[in-house]
Amino acid sequence: MTNGNKRTAGDHPLMLCFDTSTAVLAAAVCRGAEVLASRHSHAERNHAVRIVSDLKALLEEAGGEEIDGIAVGRGPGSYTGVRIGVSAAKTLAWAWDKPLVGLSSLETLAMAAGPYLRGDKQATETAAFATRHAERPVWVVPIMDARRGQVYGARFGTTDGSVWHRLDEDAIRLIGEWGPSLAACAGEAGALLVFVGEIGPHAAALEALVGAVALPLAIDAGEMGRLAAARLAIGLVDDVHGFAPNYTQLTEAETKLGDGARTEGQA
């Protein structure tokens, strides 16, 4: 650092974190778990308009210090949305010559349950959370609506909301099939199943799952800071030029081309 702030070797890096894959434009400046400034605005169609001026305001609010790295949600989610976040993150990382940490947008969405599991925040469904004190594992399943009964989803395990491990990869799935199979597995494993994210469009399917909790939480950029700092600390950084969104899906045109090739192959 060149701006003379007193930093010891044990300090966490100052990270600019943001995600635009959902209807929420989430951004924060964090030093490890400490959130120096954050903004969360609901305006899906305006992410491209506001992102850069929001980041500028945020950096000023956080003290205008030079940042040490950039963390961004690389999807899945809205195709346009993830492109906005990834384009901004790549360009800033390149222009500032700082490390870039790409995070799964589903993982960052799962992290939004962290404060409730740690007891930093209270959910209305506190009764369900009370049961976790019996050392029950918690499976947090972040979901984003992908239309036609589908969701982008993944599964993460935790006991305390601080240490997480991934149990399922990011993928697009039919909630009507995936939901019941998760509930059955959770029953066998004695885990508390918690869905977070875009619950609304799939409320009926989720209500049918016995013992599952659904929390309509949005991505919390402040929670991205912990994850980003941990990844940066072990050198899990991305190549800026090669960095690209994770859409989890081919485009329709590519799928059709693939189908065509297969059909021809069989003929």
Binding site: A48, V52, L55, K56, T80, R83, S87, A88
Partner: peptide, 18 residues
């Protein structure tokens, strides 16, 4: 529009960074 968005967001980020 999808292609323009990438350029505009990158350009704005570059203007901010520099």
């Amino acid at each position: 529009i999808g292609a323009l968005l990438v350029g505009v967001v990158a350009a704005k980020s570059l203007a901010l960074a520099l």
